[in-house]
Amino acid sequence: MPKSITFKANSIIYFQGDQSERIFILKSGRVLLKTLDIDTGKEVNEVINTGEFFGVKSALGRYIRDETCMALTDTEVLAFSVAEFEQLVLSNTRIIMKMLKVFSNQLRRIHHKVEKLLNKSDAETDPETGLFKVGDYYFNNRQFHQAAFALNRYLTYYPQGQYASQATLRLQESERYLSKTGGSGTAAKPAAAPVGMPGMGAPKPSGGTGGAKQFYEAVGLISQEKYQDALNILNEIITGNTDPENLAKAEFEIGRCLTHLKKHDEAIRHFTGLIQKYPKHPDIKEALFLIGKAYEGKGDKPWAKNFYEKVMSMCQEDEPTAIRARKALQAISGGMG
């Protein structure tokens, strides 16, 4: 049972450096927490209000108190053991949520401070360069699986970034290597998919589920060129379905609808997200081809060209997607002079 304890004005509830597993709530009176700011060395005071907790962090983290706690007026507190505190907050999750926000905020602030001190001596790396370098490192060390992952991420976040062309080349080469060695990179054939994603690519015996029915309805609408209606149904599948097979297929079809609706930016974003989420998606080449189409639709020929070339590098020469990519490439190359 939590214990009620009273303190006279100006008495100390605990000292900095004490080891204790007690957590307090202030019932009445006023309490002051005194800390030394780790940055400036100056004393910082914080007043606790009625109903607030204190002593939580050191008790939960099992380290010494890092502040001295003093009663300013005659004060009554409720003292909990860690176990009692846990019982209380588990039945009142809003408290956990609130504390989580406060703690995560503190953690982020102290993390930033540490990073700032470190960067005095270390040159700061911007996220774009950093991400590319991670991919580059794995590529140079012939860890193609990791390289492909990092480079894919790079191209997703920075499709027009300063290292985009290098990243694309390295990615192609990584994928070529992975498909040659039978590694399950993004270029893996659908037959290899069950290793990483059970159910994907292979039809499921339980075909008659609601999700599947909706899916075929959507495909039907697409064939009738009713893309907006199809999109609505596909979005319903996404929100209501957790079957990874239907989900992956629906996501792909959403991208197709967006392409047909000439929502180019949305289509690019959607397909890059899809490739990232399902690196072994059986329609990955088609998705890349459609990204190229979307860039072409936007009038961005160099990028369209990049993607068409990538599709061709991943396909056998006589694959339908490769043939379409080659045609598209010839068409825009002609236009570019």
Partner: peptide
């Protein structure tokens, strides 16, 4: 699980300080 995250945050704040 969320309570455990709270505990980890407490410890990591201390480590970072």
């Amino acid at each position: 699980i969320v309570l455990n995250i709270l505990k980890i945050f407490s410890k990591r704040i201390y480590d970072q300080k």
